[in-house]
Design a binder for these strands. Sequence first.
RNA 1: GCCGGGAUGGCGGAACUGGCAGACGCAGCGGACUCAAAAUCCGCCGAGGGCAACCUCGUGGGGGUUCGACCCCCCCUCCCGGCACCA
Length: 879
Amino acid sequence: MAPQDANKTSAQEVRYDPAELEIRWQQQWAAQSDLYRAHPLGQGAPKYYVLEMLPYPSGQLHMGHVRNYSIGDALARYMWMQGYNVLHPMGWDAFGLPAENAALKNNMPPRQWTLANIAQMRRQMERLGFSYDWQTEVTTCLPEYYRWNQWFFLRMLERGLAYRKQSKVNWCPECATVLANEQVIDSCCWRHEETKVEQRDLEQWFLRITDYAQELVDGLEKLSGWPEKVRTMQRNWIGRSAGATIDFAVEEQGGAEDNEPGRRHGKTPLPALEGFNSNSVKDAAEKIRIFTTRLDTIYGATSVQLAPQHPLVAQFAASDHRLRSEVDSLLEEQRKAREQDAFGALEKHGVFTGRFAINHYNGERLPIWVANYVLLEYGSGAIMAVPAHDERDYEFARKYGLEIRIVVLPRRTEPLTEGERQEPVLPYIEEDSLLINSGDYNTLGCMEAREKMAAFAQGHGFGEATVTFRLKDWGISRQRYWGTPIPILYCHKDGIVPVPDDQLPVLLPENIEITQQGGSPLAKIPEFVNAVCPKCGGPARRETDTMDTFVDSSWYFYRYTDARNSGEPFAPERAAYWFPIDQYIGGVEHAILHLIYSRFWTKVMRDLGLIKNDEPAERLFTQGMVIKNGAKMSKSKGNVVSPDDMIARYGADATRAYALFAAPPDRDLDWQEDGVAGVSRFLSRVYRLGMRYAPQVRTAAKTAAPSTSPVAQRLLRKLHRTIRKITQDFAGRWHFNTSVAAIMELVNEIVSAESEIAALPASESAVLAAALLRPLVLLLAPFAPYLAAELWQAIGATDAILRHPWPRFDENLAREEEIEIPVQINGKLRAVISIPREADNEALQKAALEEERVQAAIAGKQIIKVIIVPGKLINIVVK
RNA sequence: GCCGGGAUGGCGGAACUGGCAGACGCAGCGGACUCAAAAUCCGCCGAGGGCAACCUCGUGGGGGUUCGACCCCCCCUCCCGGCACCA
């Protein structure tokens, strides 16, 4: 081929070959081990910790990962260029069931399978050119990491934050293990969306996340850098509600003749308030504890409702066959409804127990019912039913003919007119109201009555103001092999014995046979199970369950600050320097799982004195899903796009830049391969532009000021506007789709001005080209780092572009001399006039009125008003 | 049912604080280069009307506020996500 012609339109231009160029730079970067390394303690430079959620090593990156990491990498590169000391790490959430399944299928040890996948995915990440410091890589399935899970567990055990109890737990038959509440979605397993979760009664280890429930809710108010959506989801999940627990005494059976449930029970033989003795309540044979958020309506309670699973129900039913069989059918009905996911739609059903409870506020006897809409898991599994002021109780009372007594009335500002009824529409649930039919509390407002009533109950020992949470403690035991062993021993003599710190880690045995049947795989390995009790030296049995993998991801980002520390989880001074994370980026699917556990873990670590921050991350960003043909990419839909394919066809830069260009990062992204091709064409155009001018730019003096020729003025103005826009995008809305579009506009404008540039004197055109191309390449660096590095070198730079200062914009250069002002007549656009920027309103109005089309439009009409928005628009109102 | 988010050309999207609707890209159409194709480059590209200059309509639907509304207010429809008998 003939040597390249100097003419700018040469047909033999060098071709953009992303594969060649990218692999060349990848090798060069791999050789520079400290390229992406942050100083662990800063040394003066301001710190910036940007973190993307670590992946599960399935073996293949998917487009969601590529999008997530492209966002994070653009930010990390930008922050380096802004002069920050940037921590940008990556790791592997490497424990979990898929490794066991793969082991069964391929007859390959989980560890080997996992590590091979990690190697494969790391290659993909390196090929994509992400700026991770691999020196801080964290792999959660390695003993160097999971020993600290065990260490934290022991610290929690010491503080009573870890405990063991027998309870009903969620069991996924597919996973053959227990799941946490957070891992059950629509009563199905989060990993097996088709598999219904069963309830099993098992002994499990729990972490007392509920101890932090209040702080976890309160903290959400301060997390202004988190999406409102995530904060709302967490608030709902924690489900705080303030109310009161109140005890009702259960009347001895046969204590009263009147056993008709629907009847009014105005007067009773039981003690009224004055004769009330709190001891008699405590000593009562039975009591029912209810939870209510509407204590103010307690005078309107006309029955007490128990959940069918409530212990008292079984007790009542023991001597009552009719009740037994009716309760059984309630339970059966519930079970069926749960199975069909129709629990919420279940019609309210109940049965009268024949027993009565005493309302200590007024001494009334209330019939005790069993109702299918009362949940055992929430509150105390029992409620007082106030039909007049609760929708569900109302529905139930109407069905069974129970009394409906109004005790709350709307506040009125005017007296009743004649004939107007006082009754509100039922059920009346407003709280900005006044009490009636409520003894001493009549005429009080709801809020005030609640406080006084709670104080009364407390004073008499039958209740108090309480706060209830929907959040339950975190069950972490898993009957699986591939996870962190729980460091506990069971000794006949000493009971539950923690493994001493100096015996950590409790190593997960290798080379074992994996089966999916019959409980924890570890239980079948005698060498693992049989141990020595550290207290008495006698034989002990090891705990054979492993920890939920969400333990691993609850604190991994602290380990990045000190990943090779073998004496402690991390050095506190390092965490103090780096935390909180400045920007955390990941999928919204972790809004409740990972993000609530890791907030909990942070608070525990703070209370252990290891860290000073209350929350792990200052700012959180949740990117949208990657979809194709209107659906989330999935194997079953057959719409999966492989990152490897995209890279092979268009290169890493084009794949990454497209992931940023196709949609704003917080919205779903519809993957269209033609769009990737378009971005690739754009990068090719930039490449050819850069290469055309590289020889001139190399010779141009860096400090020389570009000429004041019109073309230079115009292009520099565009350049500075582009710098300003992209800088603002990083600082603000993160609309990188418009950042990339802005670079495209700039490139288009330079390319179409090339003949004008060529017409300038040779030295001037070189200076102008340099003044345009150097910043252009810098702007490109966060979005297409390979191409930027290549061009940076081609135009004669010798430093690493990653550490080169981000270009600054000059407001004066960005400003237009002549601005275009739209002219509206009655709000409709009629003309656009060009006018000097400094022109005052008078001159602007004059110019507008003189404009030909404006003249035509206002001819014969009367000008009523002229609205001028300086620098923006002029609107002439005519009649 | 409740709480979030959304609806703009054939498609993805832009319009930052109420001020030129459709930037940028894709697809499409026409042209240049070529024996031809690829690549590249140039032009057109919301709908309707008009030879044209231009005119009218147009941001899910209906009302309103305003000189002016994709943007603010009220009502409604649909889509996505979360929670859901939580007392």
